[in-house]
């Protein structure tokens, strides 16, 4: 099973290594990991997607919590959270395929952010499934390059995952 956890960490050198090291050492599988700033410059937020049963998830949460630089670990219930991922995809395009691609892009509410005679760069945001689906659709034209951010996630409503108590 796939789980998503949000981790607030101190913004210090080596923190990412500590976390990725812990995952590999304990045999946990990371599906995706994204890191970015929070509103407080002292902290960063990671969204980690892990594969495993509930026992594995519990160990992941407890082991992460033990790291001195980890401030908070929260499991995000997929039912109660919103999640987004951004991808940019470079596809082959020529005058015969360009308009078909543009139609697909508009169906997905994606955007074209670069055009050249033989390729297009498409930007899409959405949950993982949507990004997967667009990727799938674009494959027939030839994906030359793709960069996905990995997902970020947040609980709906007023509940928050933050550094303080």
């Amino acid at each position: 099973m796939k789980h998503t956890i949000a981790v607030i960490v101190e913004n210090k050198p080596g923190v990412l290594t500590r976390i990725s090291g812990l995952f590999s050492r304990r045999g946990f599988n990371i599906e995706s990991l994204s890191v970015g700033a929070t509103d407080n410059p002292a902290y960063s937020r990671m969204t980690i997607s892990v594969e495993g049963d509930d026992v594995v998830l519990e160990q992941v949460v407890k082991q992460l919590s033990k790291l001195i630089n980890v401030i908070r670990v929260s499991r995000l219930d997929p039912e109660e959270s919103v999640e987004r991922e951004l991808a940019i995809i470079k596809v082959s395009a020529n005058k015969d395929t360009r308009s078909e691609i543009m139609q697909i892009v508009s169906v997905f509410r994606a955007r074209i952010i670069d055009v050249s005679p033989r390729s297009l760069i498409i930007e899409v945001t959405g949950d993982e499934k949507k990004v997967d689906a667009l990727q799938q659709m674009l494959r027939q034209f030839g994906i030359k390059e793709m960069a996905r951010t990995g997902k970020v996630s947040m609980v709906r409503g007023s509940k928050v995952v933050q550094a303080g108590p």
């Binding site: 290594t17 500590r18 090291g21 001195i68």
Partner: peptide
Amino acid sequence: ITGITMPITKHNYL
């Protein structure tokens, strides 16, 4: 050495 001992220390500092 901080890299080497990361998995065998409770915490380490450079």
